[in-house]
Design a protein around this nucleic acid. Structure first.
Lengths: 249, 249
DNA sequence: GTTACTTTTCATACATGTACCAAAACTCAT
DNA sequence: ATGAGTTTTGGTACATGTATGAAAAGTAAC
């Protein structure tokens, strides 16, 4: 509460003209070691201690290059986002929005550990240019469709909530229960359906009970991008009118 | 990896006719102790060790009443859900859906720790009757509006993704950073806006940069229930037609 | 070279969730 | 009452993230 890790923390990489001891380990080396662990052992093995060992430094040394584990993951996300193809910025605005959201979704599905961090309040301000391109594409699409800035932000946020919710419910949770090590198969995260609800009491939950065994199958279906389009339509139908969820200041 | 905590675990409360030593501590006592900690010290203090101390048993004894921490939280959620008012099941289906979703959202906003657990795959099957009432209300509303069962499941899932995404991004994350103890003020979780994006390069992210300082204000606006309604409209517009995100089997 | 100062490095410590296992405690059939 | 079987209990141990603060290692001024 009092001490705030008082020393110099998380220098970008080369502090301008300070004087002290030069770092033996660079931020790039640490990120490289992290990527090595990710590829070799799976993301569940990416712990601070293991990373330090992989980088050949003491555990706490890492904390001079990253603020905390969360910061490490965000830096990794930004590195990985650099490899995403830039989103399309021309054509039908609605298509662009769906395409950008889908690309965001697919990236997260491939890196489920990233979702762990992307629920952090204010994470947007820590994203790099590559990751922000997707956000920009969605907002631009909404504005081009006729949304006010306030509405465009609302469109982006709704899509983001939907996306991160899907990822967390479907992908991340599977990893939490996976038990040991690596993801089951990496990309095909959506294999295990929700369980059957067939044993419900029809007098209490008639509709759920009626769906019963089919729930698992239905709930396992992918919702990207077709399912997304439906509610993007709903969001965009409000374009131009006031009150998209609150008045603009 | 090999041993699976082999003994009998997580007996509901009174196993039918088994023989062994009777438990000195009941599941109800443990849940009561957990609620006491929640109220007195805030949810961040609800650790397994502290709970054991509060209940007056050794740490590992808890694991005979709950499978793990996650299980404990789910049992708590079910207890708390019992106090929710039952959702309305008559009237305009669209209104019912929005009302049920809003009630679900408000409950989660009040218990941010619950979201930690509700991204677990298959959590639906561990919900009690009270919590399931909300799910039933949403599915029933969709069916009454003319959705096929497959579409109704899709509507529910979309709403759920959106809701849990919002909660995790806006509420849960704030708690993760809060540092010590209790939520800032309990119900009003949505006080701290996303940071400004005003320092972006307009040549790279023109739309985001244009929104700039206003981003924080806009992103802090509540999206329930008005924002939800917009995309529920979009989802329900598909009612009756095939392919709501995949064909029904 | 010596001194003062800054920064990096890392050993130690603590709280956490929980696996493992041995001992205790109880019921029931005999 | 005794022995067999079963369950509960809790001590010990490990991996985790990270706070703290001392020691080491460099640079700059003299």
């Amino acid at each position: 509460m009092t001490g705030e890790h008082d020393g110099a923390v998380t220098r970008p990489d080369a502090p301008p003209g300070r004087t002290g001891r030069p770092p033996r380990t660079s931020r790039a080396q640490i990120l490289a070691a992290a990527r090595r662990i990710l590829e070799r052992d799976g993301w569940e093995k990416l712990t601070i201690r293991r990373l330090a060992a992989e980088a050949g430094v003491a555990t706490m040394t890492l904390y001079h290059h990253v603020r905390d584990r969360e910061d490490l993951l965000i830096q990794l996300i930004n590195e990985l986002a650099d490899q995403l193809p830039p989103p399309d910025l021309s054509g039908d605005p609605r298509d662009r929005i769906v395409a950008a959201a889908t690309s965001m979704h697919d990236a997260l599905a491939a890196w489920p550990w990233a979702a762990e961090v992307l629920t952090t309040d204010g994470f947007l301000s820590r994203l790099g240019e590559s990751a922000l391109r997707v956000v920009e594409a969605i907002v631009a699409g909404a504005v081009d469709h006729g949304c006010t800035p306030a509405q465009a932000v609302h469109v982006y946020r709704s899509i983001w909530y939907y996306t991160v919710g899907e990822i967390l419910v479907r992908a991340n949770s599977r990893h939490r229960r996976a038990g040991d090590g690596r993801p089951a198969e990496g990309a095909t995260l959506f294999s295990g359906p929700d369980p059957s609800l067939g044993d419900l009491d029809p007098s209490h939950q008639p509709h759920l009970a009626a769906i019963g065994d089919r729930w698992g199958v239905l709930a396992a279906q992918d919702t990207y991008p077709e399912g997304l389009r439906a509610f993007v339509d709903g969001l965009l139908a409000r374009a131009g009118s006031p009150e998209p969820g609150g008045p603009a200041p």
